[in-house]
Design a binder for these strands. Sequence first.
DNA 1: GCATTATACCTCGTGTTATGATGTATTTCA
DNA 2: TGAAATACATCATAACACGAGGTATAATGC
Lengths: 106, 106
Amino acid sequence: MDIQLKRGLLEVCVLAAIKSEDSYGYKIIKDMKPYIPLSESTLYTILKRLESANMLTVRTAEHDGRLRKYYHITGAGQKRIEDFKNQWNEILSIYQFVTKEDERNG
Amino acid sequence: MDIQLKRGLLEVCVLAAIKSEDSYGYKIIKDMKPYIPLSESTLYTILKRLESANMLTVRTAEHDGRLRKYYHITGAGQKRIEDFKNQWNEILSIYQFVTKEDERNG
DNA sequence: GCATTATACCTCGTGTTATGATGTATTTCA
DNA sequence: TGAAATACATCATAACACGAGGTATAATGC
């Protein structure tokens, strides 16, 4: 996937990865991998950003003797997903603009 | 439209704006405005980038006593549009990932 | 005649962001 | 015993959109 195109989707995908159930870094990466592969450094940057924006909250819990940080989506985070959905029509119209019949060669 | 989301679409849109007919800066901005508004500084940055990547060629012509720089799409530019089209299915699957039923609240 | 707007181009500095490289520490499995 | 998986984190870098600013001519309004 094109890096630039990824940019607009990454944040929302991370939120989507925790919206049904609280999750943690390593699992988020595995869940997103089939859709958008991302590195750990990228994910933790995004998680920090989303936390600063109050789109998620963090809670540390022990699991098999290892610490995990569980991320929980907030109302603002859910709104972020809704905003993305609302932009979808704009994206579709852009897709049509890009793919519409080319008179020069068509 | 979300700035980050714009990033992946701007370049392809500029190429789409010149694919049927050679065009020039001012007109490209007006043509794109209904889909993605962009500033002149952004456009000229992108045009330079696309020229460096051999995705378009430039030709200067006089029009009503004013100089215009006409941009012409190349094969590489057309391929860039094709690549975008080919990524569309990935974007759709991401959209579904983001919008799929939320068991926590749904 | 004069001011404003539209047309048409360009550069520079800045802030945001994705990512590779790197580091720490534990558990599991060969 | 040593490699891989799990799980977290930071830093430097490069790409990029954009506001602010600059130059110049044509058209329009008063």
